[in-house]
Design a protein around this nucleic acid. Sequence first.
DNA 1: CAATTTTTTGACCACACGGTCAAAGAATAC
DNA 2: GTATTCTTTGACCGTGTGGTCAAAAAATTG
Lengths: 195, 195
Amino acid sequence: MAGRRTEDRRLSFIEQARRDQLVETTIGLVAEHGYAAASLARIAQAAGITKGAVLYHFASKDAVVAAAHAHVLDALVADVGAAVDAAPPDQAPAAYTRRMVGYLTENPHHARMVIEAMTADGRPDAEARREPLAALLRRARGSRGLPPGPDPRTLALITGGAIDAIVTERLRDPGYDARTAAEALVTMLETALFA
Amino acid sequence: MAGRRTEDRRLSFIEQARRDQLVETTIGLVAEHGYAAASLARIAQAAGITKGAVLYHFASKDAVVAAAHAHVLDALVADVGAAVDAAPPDQAPAAYTRRMVGYLTENPHHARMVIEAMTADGRPDAEARREPLAALLRRARGSRGLPPGPDPRTLALITGGAIDAIVTERLRDPGYDARTAAEALVTMLETALFA
DNA sequence: CAATTTTTTGACCACACGGTCAAAGAATAC
DNA sequence: GTATTCTTTGACCGTGTGGTCAAAAAATTG
């Protein structure tokens, strides 16, 4: 019988290909027409198949969107993570900020998806989103032998919000110089951090 | 005949009261269950009337939501505007930041509505949202006889994004000290502005 | 009181949504 | 080749959506 996939089964090559295709299609859809436009019918149509086929590869529409979300997040985390790891501790916050803006500027589809997801209902991951930067900030001060200064949570919050704003503006106006804006932000952050 | 309202007719007292009630109801609905939950049926139910009655007072569901949005924005602008007007030019950006965080912290329903609306589809008002602060920043530097320094658009963007993040965090965790966070932001902003 | 206007109801419509499922079509295995 | 499994289709279902409208109920007017 044409049973639904079980989650732990090894995926065949072609099934994996379909899943990848659907994820990619969904990212494009969300990026260009917003979260609300990512309906089953539109995803299916954009992928050139029918709703039923989509639901053969994913348990639900939410699962498709979640997979797309996870894919984008993985790529972002990998990219930024590499940049942070390559930087000395006291420059890690700056590296984080620069790469975050850089990656999202270079990948507008991913940027739109991240921003769309960020603001979508609920988002209990709000704390998780800011925590990594807060940790970098603590470590940066420690590496310079400074006592814990300004509240890292607040500093991470401010920086994170500013990054979102810069990226959003860049999406709105491709002529906007996000790189220079990121430098201004880095200067403000480091001044506050190492004051 | 029970004709639909024309937009320029003088509203009767009771009609105005109904409109106010519906606006208030909608704000509460959006604040507590998100934009998507503000459907005609739910608005009507929450107000204790039927869908038809809602559409007698407003041309469409979008008109109800738009009125709620406008109401919240008016209150916010009035409050922040007064605080800004009462401050000397070189302290106007700080006043703006403090009152923005203050008002939204004191009025969580309005805050949720503003944030929900901010991120909802399209929002071509993105530039309009940042422009007032940018103007204050330019004026602040001028009032101290300083030449135009760091890009006001970028500074306004960073500050605005940070305000959003602080307010969002405060909504998430009512124990969070938004006031102190706002002070940290003000310090960063003024340092960058008057460097 | 009756006449008129304002407001509300509740049934109804068309449509888009997520999801189900038997049957048909393609691949693959043997 | 046949048998078996994987994949896709397309009709169908239930639900919620925004919106319309004739008729009834309130309120107001004279």
